[in-house]
Amino acid sequence: MSVATEIIAPPPQSAAARLADGLWRRPGLVVALLLAPALLWLAVVYLGSLATLLRQSFFSLEEFSGLVVEDYTLSTYAELLQPSNFEIIKRTVLMAAAVSVASAIVGFPIAYVAARYARGAWKAAFYIAVMLPLWSSYLVKVYAWKLILAREGILTWTFGKLGLGFVLDGLLALPGVGGGSLSTSYIGTFLVFLYIWLPYMILPTQAALERVPGSLINASSDLGATPWATFRHVILPLAAPGIVAGSIFTFSLTLGDYIIPQVIGSGRYFIGQAVYVQQGTAGNIPLAAAFTVVPIVIMGVYLAVARKLGAFDAL
């Protein structure tokens, strides 16, 4: 065996080793250096852009020339609260809420089975089955639904084959949510939103359920609880932070989306479309900017409530 003679090795000679020594002595500096690049990037590129956008919302549009007047005013926010714009906000929030609730209901059994029963190969299969739609191209998924919901598409065909064509017609005849075909109705928009954001609900719910020890569930049924009581008093409270965490995604993503309602829907605007049209064809950047403040404020409130409910621990 080699016997090192020195008790304390002499200070290093090479520049790299001297640098390592210097950094070792200043752990705070190391953390600062590691953080600096990303923080600078996010602060300058991201927060900086957000700030420019917010500033725009305090400008206004000169009605006749269509030019932006760079004077600070609240008139754009007044415009935002006009009934027609308010309708858009209300419609979007209702849709986001409906999608969040539905994905919690549809997603829960999948998350539960994946967390409680799936082992080994099944676990992998569940993972792939959730991850594949999650990571598949967003547009391809929207496109797939355009195919499915088309008047001549697979859903109409299936209902027809089953002799249930009248059910579909009945659904489409519903006032408010119906329309000429599934792909031009709110029902269609809702289905596509639900499909596309569902994995974002499943994963946090599954993660929360995986932290529930199986022994807890056995203990509850040993104590005489019916499956429903066990679900109600043991599983649901423990899964709740995960479900709330998932709803942050489903809610936020629905609030800001402008492509799905554009491709599949009744043609009435959602917030995202309003922003898109205002900044694009209408050229009203201040109003577009003011519109984006709506989801930011809603999500701010939502996140604050979610934090209170302990959803951040499940994130």
């Binding site: 991201y46 852009s49 420019t52 995202g272 900017a289 984006t292 930011i296």
Partner: peptide, 27 residues
């Protein structure tokens, strides 16, 4: 705060990131 800042661009709707960047590029 660092975690929040990193997650924010994906937690806020993409349209906000998009239009914010566009208005910054324009400015």
């Amino acid at each position: 705060a660092v975690s929040l800042l990193v997650i924010l661009p994906i937690a806020l709707p993409g349209i906000i990131t998009g239009i914010a960047l566009r208005s910054a590029f324009a400015t």
